[in-house]
């Protein structure tokens, strides 16, 4: 039935490398557009503006590989960003404010892990609830108005350059290397894959499943808070509005890359590619002057198409067995 002929090969490439294909199609398509898409400035700008989403994605990837997912990252991100600015405006030194904001993410991640791993609730719905709660917290903290930061050196974190490369890109690359190493070369990473592959088998083979999976949620929360601090720094304001759909877009982006909701497969580089699809899509559409409403629609359609393909691949796998 399966695995015969060119069609099957093509199908396999299509489902395995959706993100890479989408990126190539867009890059080739933009060759024919009369815009300055292919300027070093624009490409670097695109990478810089996608960096925050990428950092969110690296954390979320760990939870998805372990067979969970984290939809509270949008809430964590906005609250952490607002907290860091509020603390600084209240006179706290920058380093301490940032540290406390990131610590907040760690604590939320710990709570997520407790509920989703220790108490075994459905991760996607419980983190959706936590995300809703945090959105309310963010609105309450800011009274739904953006809070401007008053510290110029804070702004430089997200807007500065290091030897011509935006700081955000450098931070993103460092975190990329760190999470890649964590997933690829450490026992913790291997255990996460095992847990996502088969929870019970992992448990019987002596892995401390609860602690390992819990830690994935803690890391995801911490990374989300870090992304929130960077976002506030980039915009120089703390605002509650950015968290609304970010969580769902990032989780979908991770799946686009090839990390499946079924758990146990995927990786950090795949997630990076997946999120780049969304970054590239947004940037290309801006370059082509496509109306923002139409952009929203295309983004939604891409999400539907990708989740559809992911589910369809799962179905094929089930039927092949």
């Amino acid at each position: 039935m399966n695995g015969t002929g060119k069609g099957a090969t093509l199908y396999k490439i299509l489902t395995k490398q959706k993100a890479l294909i989408a990126i190539l199609v867009m890059l080739i398509g933009m060759l024919f557009s009369h815009s300055n898409f292919y300027s070093a400035f624009n490409l670097l700008q695109m990478l810089s503006s996608t960096s925050i989403l990428l950092i969110l994605a690296f954390g979320v990837t760990l939870t998805i590989i372990a067979g969970g997912c984290d939809l509270s990252i949008g809430g964590i991100m906005v609250v952490a960003g607002i907290v860091s600015i509020k603390l600084m405006n209240a006179g706290m030194p920058m380093g301490l404010a940032i540290f406390l904001a990131i610590l907040f993410g760690t604590v939320v991640g710990f709570v997520n892990g407790f509920l989703a791993v220790h108490q075994k609730t459905e991760p996607f719905i419980i983190t959706l609830g936590i995300g809703l709660l945090l959105t309310g917290v963010a609105q309450q903290l800011t009274n739904a108005h953006p809070v401007p930061a008053q510290n110029p050196s804070f702004m430089m974190i997200g807007n500065g350059y290091f030897h011509g490369v935006p700081n955000l890109v450098i931070i993103m690359l460092v975190l990329f290397a760190l999470t890649y190493w964590l997933m690829r070369y450490t026992e913790f990473g291997r255990n996460l894959y095992a847990i996502g592959g088969d929870y019970e088998v992992a448990r019987y083979s002596g892995i401390d499943v609860i602690r390992t999976k819990w830690l994935a949620f803690v890391i995801s929360g911490t990374m989300a808070a870090l992304a929130g601090v960077l976002l506030s720094s980039e915009l120089n304001t703390g605002s509650a509005v950015y968290g609304e759909t970010t969580a769902l877009v990032v989780n979908c982006g991770v799946v686009v890359g090839g990390t499946s909701f079924a758990g146990g497969i995927g990786g950090i580089p795949q997630s990076a590619l997946g999120l780049l699809v969304f970054g590239l899509l947004g940037n290309s559409m801006n370059m082509l002057n496509i109306s923002s409403y139409f952009q929203i629609m295309l983004q939604g359609a891409v999400i539907v198409a990708i989740i559809w393909l992911d589910s369809y691949a799962q179905k094929r796998k089930r039927e092949a067995v």
Binding site: I296, I303, W308
Partner: peptide, 29 residues
């Protein structure tokens, strides 16, 4: 959902979220 063979709540959640974005964008357009 049916044509993709999605059987889990998580798959339905993300797919209907994507569709929500599409419906909202049509409303905006």
């Amino acid at each position: 959902i049916l044509s993709s063979g999605a059987l889990t709540q998580a798959e339905a959640l993300f797919m209907t979220f994507g569709l929500s974005t599409v419906y909202s964008a049509i409303a905006l357009l």
